[in-house]
Design a protein around this nucleic acid. Structure first.
Lengths: 209, 209
DNA sequence: GACTGTCTGTAGCGAACACTACAGTTATAG
DNA sequence: CTATAACTGTAGTGTTCGCTACAGACAGTC
C-alpha cells in the first residue's frame, strides 16, 4: 500500500533526513503569503509559521521568491483548479459562468481574514528587484482572461450565446469583475455580497438568441 | 496681485526659509508613490525624486506615511475630483456613468508607466505596522462606492432608471468593475481596452423604463 | 568501523530600511 | 547687534531585511 507522501517524506538518498513535513510547511507558507502578500511576509514570519529554521527553508525551497511561486502554484491547484474546470466543462455556458463566479465568491471569502485572490493581489506592490514574481502572477492573470474568452467562444459555437456576441469585450469585462471581486473581498465584502455582484454581472451575458 | 503660492513659499515666521518648492516636491513624491506603491517607494528614492534631503522631507511632511497620505489627497484632487463631480452633476444618469468611466479610462492610463489607481492599488500589500495607511485608502474606496450608490439612487428618483432597479447591487457591481479596471491598467491595458470594458459594463444599467 | 552527503540549529553576514543628531546657515524679532 | 527659530547637508542611528557560514547530527555506502 504505497502512499504518495508520508507525513515525513522518506529519503532513499544518503544524508540526514528532513525532520519536517515539506507539504505541511508549504501550506503554512501559503497561509502567510496569502494573508500578507509577497513582500510584507518576512522570511522570519514564514519560518515561524512553518516551524522551520532559515537554513532548512532555503535548503527545501530555494529562496523566498521560489517559495512564493510554489505556494501560488499550490494555491491555484488547491483552490482554483476545480473552479476553472467547472467553467470549462459545464456544458451550458450560463450555468458554467454562474457556477464559476459562485465558487469564486466562496474561495475569496474562505480565509478567516479578508485577503482576496493571491494571484490578483499577492504581489500588487513589489520592489523593482522582485519584478519576476509580479510577472509570473501577471501571466497567471492573463491565463484567467484567456479562460473566459475561450469559454465564451465555445458558448457562441454551442449557440448558448447569439452569434453576434462581442466575445472579446465580454471576456475582458467579466475578467475585470472577477479581479475587482478580489479587491472587494480584501476590503471585507461577505460571500453573499460577492455573490450578489456576480449575479448582477451575469446580466452581461446575452440570453440564448 | 496676490498669488496663492509662490514658487518658494514665502515665510512670515522666523527662521531660515525653505529652499525648495513644497508643492513641486509633493508632486514628485506623488509620482513615485503612484508608480511604486507605498512600501516599495523608499524614502531614499523619494528624496532623490523630490531633490531634497531626508531632514527636509521630514521637516516638511512629517514622515513617510503622512507624505503618502498627503500625496493621495493631492492625487484625488488633481485627477479624480473632476470625474466624481461629473458623475454627480451630469443630469442624465446614463451619460453621467458613461462619462465617468470614460474619464476613468483616461486617468488610469495617463501615466507613462502602467500603475492603475493609487487608491485601489497604492497600498495593496502593506506590513501590519502600516495598517493605518491601508485603512485610509479603504475609507476612500468606500467613498467611491457610496458615490455610485448615491448617483444611482438619484437616477431612480429622476426616472432615468426604472423604479424597481436594484440600486445596491448595481452600485456594488459598477464599483467592482471600476476597481477591477485598475488591475487591468496596471497589467498594461490600453485606454481603448478600458473604454471597451466600461462600455460593456454600461449594459448593466437598465434603460429608462 | 570510516567515509560521504544532507539536514539541523546557532549565530551572524552585508545591505537596505525609516528616521535623526548635529552643526552650520539664514531668516525674523527685539 | 544679539537672540531665536526654522531649514540645510553630512553622516550617521538602530532595526529589519533576505540569506548563509559553520559545526554538529544523522542517515546510507563501503
Amino acid at each position: 500500500m504505497p502512499r504518495e507522501k508520508s507525513a515525513i517524506t522518506p529519503h532513499r538518498s544518503k544524508g540526514r533526513p528532513r525532520t519536517f513535513d515539506r507539504a505541511a510547511a508549504l501550506n503554512r507558507a501559503l497561509d502567510v503569503f496569502w494573508r500578507r502578500g509577497y513582500e510584507p511576509a518576512s522570511v522570519a514570519e514564514l519560518c515561524m509559521a512553518m516551524e522551520v529554521n532559515p537554513p532548512s527553508l532555503y535548503a527545501a525551497f530555494g529562496n523566498k521568491a521560489q517559495l512564493f511561486m510554489e505556494a501560488v502554484h499550490h494555491y491555484e491547484k488547491v483552490y482554483w483548479d476545480a473552479a476553472w474546470q467547472l467553467l470549462e466543462e459545464e456544458p451550458d455556458l450560463h450555468r458554467a459562468m454562474a457556477g464559476f463566479f459562485r465558487e469564486a465568491a466562496r474561495i475569496l471569502t474562505s480565509q478567516d481574514a479578508p485577503c482576496g485572490c493571491m494571484v490578483v493581489l499577492g504581489a500588487a506592490n513589489v520592489s523593482p528587484d522582485a519584478q519576476d514574481v509580479n510577472d509570473a502572477l501577471k501571466a497567471l492573470r492573463r491565463e484567467g482572461k484567456d479562460c473566459f474568452r475561450h469559454r465564451l467562444r465555445k458558448g457562441v459555437e454551442d449557440a448558448d450565446l447569439p452569434s453576434g456576441t462581442d466575445v472579446e469585450s465580454l471576456a475582458l469585462t467579466l475578467n475585470t469583475v472577477f479581479e475587482g471581486m478580489s479587491v472587494q473581498a480584501r476590503d471585507g465584502a461577505s460571500q453573499a455580497e460577492l455573490e450578489r455582484i456576480a449575479r448582477t454581472a451575469m446580466a452581461l451575458l446575452p440570453a440564448r438568441s
